[in-house]
């Protein structure tokens, strides 16, 4: 009550006062967190979402954008179901935010029993859209997508693709390859993209569809090689890697890197986080990271972000139906 009364006063007050209030951090008018903020990461340690979340936390702390620290917690269980449940049942939604990926769309579709409606989550901000590449180990000798197809076809279901989670981005892409190129690749799910990248570098897997940020370390050391990108255009970072479109299939697939607030977050708190992550987005460090990891996708928040979610849910529903994962 106290907050809303102050708000009304603020609106009623002179423009100058409002400006002053907004300009002074810590004044009573704007909502501020009063305790550390739970920062749920919907994926395992070392994956793309994890790396990004930790960078955002670092930027916030280093540039003192928030008066209270963000406490990252990885909840990777059940293809993101653990994180969704944790956010939904958060005792204090105003202090609970979450980094999401596409399992934000797919897991609730696959598991209606969880009772998650993603439209109830607060749209804090989409920070980027991550890209997918097809990777193989350098010792496989594969250099082109055609060579990959020949080898994978010859190996049948002995060819193993590793990825994050079940019926999530990586499996959807594997399924796409299987359906469109007559392959029988076997898919093995892991907890996070970091582990997947490690398994390929250790030659435990034949191929992966890691995000650039996940495989970059092993790419730079020369252990793994990208042979195809699932983007509309070639990535600036990998100018010699052809796209799926060039190989004759008009298909591009990206992954949202968005921050959401727990269901039930108040409008004032949402405003605060929107503003906070907007600052993160604009920071030099974030922009440099986007460039280095060849991330796509501009900043989105509020209603446009919700519209984007709706569009993504429909697309994923179709993909999952085609795959036979849901009816």
């Amino acid at each position: 009550m106290a907050i809303s009364r102050r708000h009304i006063l603020g609106i009623a007050g002179a423009l100058g006062v409002t400006a002053m209030v907004a300009g002074l951090p810590g004044t009573a008018a704007a909502w501020e967190p009063n305790k550390p903020i739970d920062f749920i990461i919907m994926a395992g340690k070392g994956g793309g979402a994890d790396k990004m979340a930790r960078l955002m936390q670092a930027i916030i702390e280093q540039e003192k954008l928030s008066s209270k620290p963000l406490v990252p917690v990885n909840k990777s269980g059940g293809s993101g179901a653990e994180a969704l449940i944790a956010a939904k049942s958060a005792s204090d939604p105003d202090h609970t935010i979450m980094v999401t990926l596409n399992s934000f769309f797919t897991t609730p579709l696959r598991q209606p029993k969880l009772g998650i409606d993603i439209m109830e989550f607060a749209p804090v901000g989409r920070m980027a859209e991550d890209t997918f590449l097809l990777w193989v180990h350098k010792d496989s000798g594969i250099k082109t997508f055609e060579e990959f197809l020949t080898k994978a076809k010859a190996d049948g279901n002995k060819w193993v693709m590793g990825g994050t989670g079940k019926a999530q981005e990586d499996e959807l892409l594997t399924e796409f390859l299987n359906n469109n190129f007559g392959l029988k690749i076997k898919y093995v799910p892991y907890k996070g993209g970091g582990e997947v990248a490690k398994q390929l570098a250790g030659k435990q897997l034949n191929s992966t569809v890691n995000n650039p940020s996940e495989a970059l370390g092993f790419y730079e050391s020369g252990d793994v090689v990208p042979i195809l990108s699932f983007t509309a255009e070639r990535l600036p970072l990998f100018p010699n890697v052809p796209t799926m479109k060039e190989k004759g299939k008009d298909f591009a697939y990206g992954m949202q890197r968005a921050v959401v607030g727990a269901p039930g977050m108040s409008a004032d708190a949402l405003k605060y986080y929107e503003n906070l992550f907007s600052k993160v987005y604009k920071s030099a460090k974030w922009q440099a990271y986007r460039k280095k990891q060849s991330l796509f996708g501009d900043e989105l928040n509020g209603d446009p972000l919700k519209a984007y979610w709706k569009e993504q849910v429909d697309r994923h529903r179709k993909m999952l139906v085609d795959m036979g994962a849901i009816k």
């Binding site: 340690k45 070392g46 994890d50 790396k51 930790r54 960078l55 936390q57 670092a58 702390e61 280093q62 990252p72 990885n74 970091g194 582990e195 490690k198 570098a201 970059l216 370390g217 092993f218 730079e220 050391s221 252990d223």
Partner: peptide, 30 residues
């Protein structure tokens, strides 16, 4: 594994990894 592979072997090292990223170090094979 945190320093050489960029994959933290324990929850604590995962947080240290975050710290290192802040100081501009990129843990990984290189």
């Amino acid at each position: 594994p945190m320093l050489t592979l960029g994959i933290p072997g324990s929850p604590t090292t995962a947080i240290l990894l975050g710290g290192m990223v802040i100081w501009g170090l990129q843990p990984g094979p290189l």
